[in-house]
Design a protein around this nucleic acid. Structure first.
Lengths: 218, 218
DNA sequence: CCGCATCCGGGGCGATACTG
DNA sequence: CAGTATCGCCCCGGATGCGG
């Protein structure tokens, strides 16, 4: 990228990650951890293959990404954020919070979606309101890639996959699940419309932001 | 800007502020408050005039900026961040923290600098280590635009201008002042080389990050 | 002088095709 | 699977014009 030629920390950061697609590549690497080129392509619908290759090369040069070639027999190279690259996660999460308002109107007709994009919103907007209770697991199903949300000890964490049997599941379209996570709608609001809860619903109520929950716009 | 067409909060945010120069325009508006077109041009060395007009128009459409036309007699329109636009300040500050490492090697030969770019670094890296002491004022002079740093009650705040008579002043080139603010160098390290302190130096020592100060890489 | 609008040249970007 | 190659196009950058 062409440099801004400004001796300012923000401008220098943008010299590295200000190009088109660059921050989304980093988002995908942050959400997936080490992964292959084709995994990134799947998580970045709309990117052209040469652009992805370009960005990965630039980010590697900048020390944000490492490309690791596995042992000779088989397998393909994997890409991963360096420690320096992981320092961008707070930036991405702040951007996520700021962009929330653009999600409430629902997706545009041709918007793409991936289930793992719910991971950070879940961790950001859900709260364990019953920290004394035993831990519980909720599964989110907005596309074919389920997200597992673990709740307990006052903490909420989420990851992709269905490796833990859930106490409750939440199936629905992305905007319905997001409206629930962010407190725009209640479970009863959209239960029959676009959202189907199964299992122990109290596990879901346990984490939903309440009307007085001040977390949303912090 | 061309949309990413992804139903993801980060992608939607980048649809609004992902264009080249856009975040720097917002940086300048955040540092200056309401200001004129020509003020922005001065604070954004390198931007072309049509780009600045484009960005301001786009940001106004997006509800990030308001253009306010003053009373008929004289004066020119001023631009200002909306409340929604001010929500980007945490994003900018996170980017600043992440970009710090690109500042330590000093500016490139043709890098531009403006004194007000020290405001957020001062607030970010300085700490009032003597909160019980009476308040003091330090003035930073890295170019012709002095920065006033107020210290007291455990807080540090900075703004452009010389409206408060300082207890101490710190004059030097930008990288010397930044190295001091971020704890890379000590006052004695660079006193004679590129830095000239005047007045009550204890006011400066009061706020400098110590070796054990954990604030730097948070 | 301030606040833009207009006019190009060049390069980043996007879509497709192709290869080891 | 993991990229490279090619080719328009449009965004960006720099210069200039111009009305209030």
């Amino acid at each position: 990228m062409r440099s801004y030629h400004q001796y300012c920390s923000i401008a220098k950061a943008l010299d590295v990650i200000g190009d088109r697609w660059t921050l989304l590549v980093i988002r995908e690497l942050a959400l997936r951890g080490a992964c292959r080129y084709s995994d990134l392509q799947d998580g970045l619908p709309g990117i052209s293959t040469n652009l992805l290759a370009d960005r990965l090369r630039e980010l590697e040069t900048a020390g944000v990404v490492v490309k690791r070639e596995p042992k000779p027999p088989v397998a393909t190279p994997v890409f991963e954020l360096t420690e320096h690259g992981q320092g961008l996660i707070p930036v991405l999460k702040q951007l996520m919070s700021w962009g929330r308002r653009y999600m409430v109107t629902g997706p545009e007709p041709d918007d793409q979606f991936r289930g793992r994009w719910l991971i950070w919103p879940a961790e950001r907007y859900l709260t364990d309101h019953l920290p004394e209770q035993p831990a519980e697991v909720i599964q989110l199903r907005a596309d074919d890639e389920p997200i597992t949300v673990e709740v307990g000890s006052g903490r909420v964490s989420a990851h992709a996959g269905d490796d833990i049997p859930p106490d409750a599941t939440l199936t629905g379209d992305p905007q319905a699940i997001l409206a629930l996570l962010t407190g725009y709608r209640t479970l009863d609001d959209i239960r029959d419309a676009n959202l189907r809860p199964t299992g122990n619903e109290s596990a879901i109520e346990r984490v939903l932001p309440g009307r007085t929950d001040p977390a949303i716009d912090r």
